[in-house]
Design a protein around this nucleic acid. Structure first.
Lengths: 305, 305
DNA sequence: ATAAGGCCATAAACTGATGTTATGGGTAAC
DNA sequence: GTTACCCATAACATCAGTTTATGGCCTTAT
């Protein structure tokens, strides 16, 4: 992890406003049109795009009296920029919910994995369909979520795990799989048949700490095949686990949601474990007897379709 | 697509510098320590974090005379922030390569899909292992890449497709699968058996324009089962195709690399097509007879492990 | 105890990027 | 040729983020 940053990232990457402007120029087809849409003046847009071009050392748009279109390099840069902006939108959606205003019309409680990886996307979609829905969010473990829902401090809860807490009705909204992943240099990476549960149980693994939802499911899946998993490292955050596995320290076990990008780019390789039940349901929960209505129903239907 | 943004995204989300600072505080455990590491003064860090807290309306760090640790909400926000910063790092890695400086010691030519989704990650990894390697990048279609490599204008090329251009040696670095994806509301989303190739060939699909690598592979795979694919929409960019599919216009066909996030969040659902060969090799290429050496060899080995 | 060295907060002055208004020069369509 | 788009440049305003200069709090070593 040697980090010898001379100049911080923020000085080498255009800020979000500039990236958003670039995306808008790409969509609209002119600098002045993009400026209008963003509520700034045309010279401001012009100078900002120019500043970005000189900073990157690449021409991004072809200007003509009839409008501006992206250059080939500009198209590539715009695609990369889009990923930054989308991540920022997810941040914004989550952060707004976290503000937890009293007047929120939809109060949600969710487990960490769901709050981290899925909820921002749902909130963006919800904002698209029901603009004006104010959402507040509390994140915690399953017991915490259950308690909030039961106490009517949350209108809807989301939990991951094997069982549904008492007093709650639930609907399965997705299956989350736990994935055993290793660095591509690890011997297991070349085993197309994967590993047996017994071998997994005997191997030293990089894991989340005991008590986490991930750990529960893993221990349950291995209970019949040689007992509990052997921790090589027990780390407190998903990120720390990923970082350790990426550095080649050993196999890690995490939700596939946390590993999507690493697996797609082959920075980590997933190892099949035939015969082990590493799936867990992601559930929406609400108090028994009631039915989610209003905004809660909107969000629930979003997550299920 | 209704976008009624009152205030632009950039005013609601902390800028990259603030997010980077938050990540550093989380890692280091103190405001002043993080400030030192980023080359700013302690009051600057303090005020920036405070500004972020008031903007979000949430306390992010617990300050104490012995240091600062994240609050529960702060940890969640930090995770979201990390995704933004990682996207920005990918942007930076790609943009630096695009600059195409003359003194670049490694000149790469790559097809669009690879340049867009995989190369930034490789460049980050390369910078980690061989700091100081200056990379220049040209993106284009397969023929363009081949020509550059043959003319020794690029030290290493990356292409996707069914065949290897003449005069080049190659190594398969990964298999890319084309994925048929639909919105969760689409009838195909519930078909666990998927669709037959003949049915796929007969259905109106959202596709990239004729001539794209994606389209080539799809047509080849369907050649034996009812002829070419039927385009419902022919769009010029991956993003446009995704957007159309997300809105429920119909099934789309794209590289799984482009769909990773949508599939993970279940915004789109992949439809299996048993019996259709929708895989394509991603290959590194270089002039026949030569062997990649130096920085080219470093990058090549990165991509393969 | 007292001194020393972490940590964080506040105040006031400085800087620069980003914005504005004002103006000018192009091309296309009627 | 007039109108209506487009983009560029110049001069000035504004505000967020910075630094320097302080001060207070807690822990640890003398």
């Amino acid at each position: 992890m040697g980090n010898e940053e001379t100049v911080p990232l923020a000085h080498r990457v255009p800020d979000l406003g500039a990236l958003e402007l670039l995306l808008t120029v790409a969509r609209v087809g002119s600098l002045s049109g993009a400026a209008r849409r963003l509520g700034i003046t045309q010279p401001a847009a012009s100078s900002r795009i120019r500043a970005m071009e000189t900073r990157l050392g690449v021409a991004l748009v072809d200007r003509s009296p009839r409008g501006s279109t992206l250059t080939a390099e500009g198209a590539l840069v715009t695609d990369w920029a889009r990923r930054v902006v989308e991540a920022a939108e997810a941040f914004d959606a989550g952060a707004q919910a976290l503000r937890g205003r009293r007047d929120s019309r939809l109060r949600v409680a969710a487990s960490m994995t769901i709050a981290e990886y899925l909820l921002p996307g749902w909130l963006i979609a919800l904002r698209g369909e029901r603009p004006g829905t104010a959402v507040s969010l509390h994140a915690g473990n399953s017991a915490d979520v259950a308690q909030r829902v039961l106490a009517h401090e949350a209108d809807l809860g989301f939990v991951e795990g094997l069982t549904v807490p008492d007093g709650l009705d639930s609907a399965v909204i997705a299956q989350d799989r736990l994935v055993v992943a290793v660095a591509p240099t690890h011997p297991w990476a070349r085993r197309s048949k994967g590993v047996e549960p017994a071998e997994l149980a005997a191997a030293p693994l990089i894991l989340r700490e005991r008590g986490s939802g991930t750990r529960q499911v893993l221990d349950a899946a291995l209970a019949g095949s040689g007992g509990l998993a052997q921790p090589l490292l027990e780390l407190a955050s998903t990120t720390a686990v990923k970082a350790a596995a990426l550095s080649g320290a050993g196999p890690c076990v995490l939700s596939e949601l946390a590993l999507v990008e690493e697996l797609a780019a082959r920075r980590l390789v997933s190892v099949p474990v035939p015969g082990a039940a590493l799936a867990r349901a992601l559930r929406a929960v609400w108090p028994t007897g009631t039915r989610p209505a209003g905004p809660a129903r909107d969000l629930l239907s979003l997550t299920r379709r």
